[in-house]
């Protein structure tokens, strides 16, 4: 009944800020990470209650799933790094800390809190102002509904994202592409060198889950045409399959040729951009598809984007460009020096 759902919403509304506060205040990084996963879950439920299933889907895939795995791996790396740093730079760090006099610390704190409060007040005022400005029961919903017939899809969100405001999505796909480029230009990925058989439990889990995830990713892209779903959600689930394979250190992952990964990364942005250019060249506006073929165009762009988003997110998790030498020989990252050594050893 209405009452139980009213209490449900109240509990959500109270639990969410409390959880956020505990998460930010937690000194223990691991606990903060677990709280973040829980926050993602409550967030997704909140989006469902706010009648925004598209956002809930993205939150479920990225907030609760992918980010959790990313944080866990980052945490492990941080722990090892800080151990090494503590040994190396113990003396240097001490001096640096001493440079800031304690009385400046004491003065900085109220200023920081005051600024934060001021920003919060401005934000709340802006929210109240925009709420007062919004006409009741309006928004852009009715306008989108009127034009939905021309968009080629039946889902309003997909119609806006891929047709009416397609260039927004084009730019978003480009941002993800740039992020992956940035990470790839920094470092090369370090995969474990040895062939490590995953245990029977993990092997079975991967065998069951990875194909299922890929299938669901395809389903989400397809269903995006008529209800919640689409390239970002499908891509995130595809990335989850990639992260699972990376975690389990399956041999297949190391044998994927780097060229294939590069093309996978570029496929979505390239196709999207080509479509935009072709639409302009044909005399229309940017991304103005021919109305009778719009559905097919959107599905094509979404499929390509989902593949690229999946590869991008998995590559961001891996944290570097693919290893240069053919993986089946020695695997992992090895400099040219090591190769030369091995050759010399072979000749002797």
């Amino acid at each position: 009944m209405m009452d139980a759902m009213g209490i449900f919403d109240m509990v959500l509304a109270l639990a969410l800020p409390w959880l956020g506060w505990r998460l930010l205040a937690s000194p223990d990084l691991f606990r903060a990470m677990v709280l973040f996963i829980s926050l993602g879950l409550l967030m997704a439920l909140t989006w469902v209650r706010l009648q925004a299933p598209d956002v809930a889907l993205a939150e479920a895939a990225i907030g609760a799933g992918l980010t959790g795995a990313l944080f866990l791996s980052a945490l492990r790396r941080l722990e090892r790094l800080s151990e090494a740093e503590r040994r190396l730079a113990f003396a240097g760090k001490r001096e640096e800390e001493d440079e800031i006099p304690p009385e400046r610390h004491r003065r900085a704190k109220p200023v920081a809190y005051g600024l934060a409060l001021l920003l919060l007040a401005v934000f709340v005022l802006l929210l109240a102002w925009s709420l007062a400005q919004t006409p009741a029961g309006g928004g852009l919903g009715p306008a989108v509904g009127e034009q939905l017939g021309q968009s080629g899809v039946r889902s309003e969100v997909t119609a806006v994202l891929l047709n009416f405001r397609g260039y927004d999505t084009l730019l978003e796909v480009m941002v993800l592409f740039l992020a992956a480029l940035g990470v790839w230009s920094l470092t090369r990925v370090r995969l474990p060198l040895q062939d490590e058989e995953p245990g029977p439990v993990l092997a079975t889990l991967v065998r069951l889950l990875a194909p299922l995830m890929i299938m669901v990713a395809g389903y989400l892209v397809w269903i995006g045409g008529s209800r919640a779903g689409g390239a970002f959600q499908g891509g995130a689930v595809l990335a989850a399959a990639g992260v699972l394979l990376l975690l389990a250190n399956v041999t297949v992952v190391r044998q994927i040729p780097a060229a294939l990964l590069r093309w996978g990364l570029a496929l979505g942005p390239l196709l999207f951009l080509l479509t935009a250019v072709v639409c302009v060249a044909a005399g229309g506006n940017l991304l103005e598809y021919p109305p009778q073929r719009a559905g097919a165009w959107i599905l094509l762009i979404e499929s390509a984007s989902a593949v690229s988003i999946g590869v991008t997110l998995a590559a961001l998790y891996a944290g570097g460009r693919p290893p240069e030498p053919p993986a089946q020989d020695r695997g992992g990252e090895q400099g040219p020096g090591r190769d030369a050594d091995a050759d010399a050893g072979g000749r002797q």
């Binding site: 799933g65 959790g68 795995a69 945490l75 209800r227 779903g229 689930v237 989850a240």
Partner: peptide
């Protein structure tokens, strides 16, 4: 009677396992 929520539940169920695997292997 809102079928979309089943899709969200499906994604949740799939990705919850991912965090568990990451935890078991990395922590």
């Amino acid at each position: 009677e809102w079928e979309v929520l089943q899709d969200i539940a499906l994604v949740f169920a799939l990705l919850a396992a991912l965090a568990a695997v990451a935890f078991a292997l990395r922590t």
